[in-house]
């Protein structure tokens, strides 16, 4: 059904964007920018993939996703602080302890926000399944409430996100400056991507979810309680948003209550570019956005956001349903 050209189009596109700035930027800077672009891409992937999966399976445009991201960042912030107070691992010189505390904080954020996501889904979104209009409204309502709750619990001001000692600074590889944390973020993102992909491809659970993305009613008829899968996917999507939030906060070293609203726009664009309901699409879309944003931000700082919008417009004009189809 697709010509070979169309099949390879997304991949070619990524490489074209990946390499074109070399014409304008010195190779050293290029590598530095590429790494931070990839890191930004991976963080966006974490947010966008949950958003995209939820849309794919539940057909819910979850505008509260950004607020869950914020919650993830704040819970990560608090739990990091608490664990650090108790053990001092964050300030330790050992990279192993640093990674442990970082992962523990992310885990707490992921679990608690997954719970929050489940509550949101059950209480707020489930009653309006099937009505697009009300779903959008209700998730806007949920977004306001969740974001305001952050302000009530943690106060309205910016906070400084603690970063483990060994995550700071940079390596100097053959005169190229490579910051440490982006490398960690890229690794984490890749691991999470492959885990999700394997679950979707190889397990029965994943197969049912992919089937549900295509035809939820038929999955019910085959004897599976689709609502349980809805809730499960919502929980996983929320956890991904939370992990993304925690990692993003560590990346920019600060948190504030409106941070989710800013990132959700990027996630939205990534999800549309990649194709709603596609995990691989989310990765490719996120990398496209992350890389192009960083290259352009270096060349013409003010046009950085413009390039993202341009990407959206161009891709939607060429492939109206995004680069990848649902369920891939």
């Amino acid at each position: 059904m697709d010509s070979p050209w169309k099949k390879w189009f997304p991949t070619l596109m990524v490489f074209a964007i990946f390499l074109s700035p070399l014409l304008l930027i010195s190779p050293k800077t290029y590598i530095t920018l590429t790494i931070s672009g990839l890191a930004m891409g991976m963080l966006l992937f974490l947010v966008a993939s949950g958003f995209s999966l939820i849309f794919g399976l539940l057909s819910v445009l979850n505008l509260a996703h950004g607020a869950l991201f914020t919650w993830g960042a704040y819970i990560g912030f608090t739990s990091f602080g608490l664990i650090n107070q108790w053990t001092g691992w964050g300030g330790s010189e050992s990279i192993f302890l640093n990674i442990t505390i970082f992962l523990l904080a992310l885990l707490t954020a992921g679990l608690l926000v997954a719970l929050l996501g489940v509550i949101t889904e059950r209480l707020v979104i489930r009653p309006v399944y099937g009505s697009h209009l009300f779903q959008i409204f209700i998730t806007v309502g949920a977004m306001i409430v969740l974001e305001e709750l952050v302000r009530i619990v943690w106060g309205p001001n910016d906070e400084v996100m603690p970063v483990p000692i060994s995550f700071m600074g940079s390596y100097d590889l053959f005169d190229v400056v490579v910051s440490k944390y982006p490398l960690i973020a890229i690794a984490m993102g890749l691991i999470i991507y492959f885990v999700i992909l394997m679950i979707l491809r190889k397990t029965k659970l994943g197969t049912i979810v992919r089937a549900g993305v295509e035809n939820p009613e038929m999955v019910q008829v085959m004897g599976h309680n689709i609502y349980r899968y809805f809730t499960g996917v919502f929980a996983v999507g929320s956890a991904l948003a939370a992990i993304g939030g925690g990692m993003w906060a560590t990346f920019v070293k600060s948190i504030h209550p409106a941070m989710g609203g800013e990132v959700i726009i990027f996630a939205l664009i990534v999800a549309i570019i990649g194709g709603l309901g596609s995990i691989t699409g989310s990765v490719v879309g996120a990398l496209l956005v992350g890389l192009s944003y960083n290259y352009v931000a270096y060349l013409v700082p003010k046009a950085a956001l413009g390039i993202t919008m341009l990407l959206l417009v161009v891709i939607l004009s060429i492939r109206p349903t995004g680069l990848f189809s649902e369920g891939t």
Partner: peptide, 8 residues
């Protein structure tokens, strides 16, 4: 916050 609740 209350507007959000009201909204829902």
């Amino acid at each position: 916050f209350y507007f959000g609740l009201l909204f829902i």
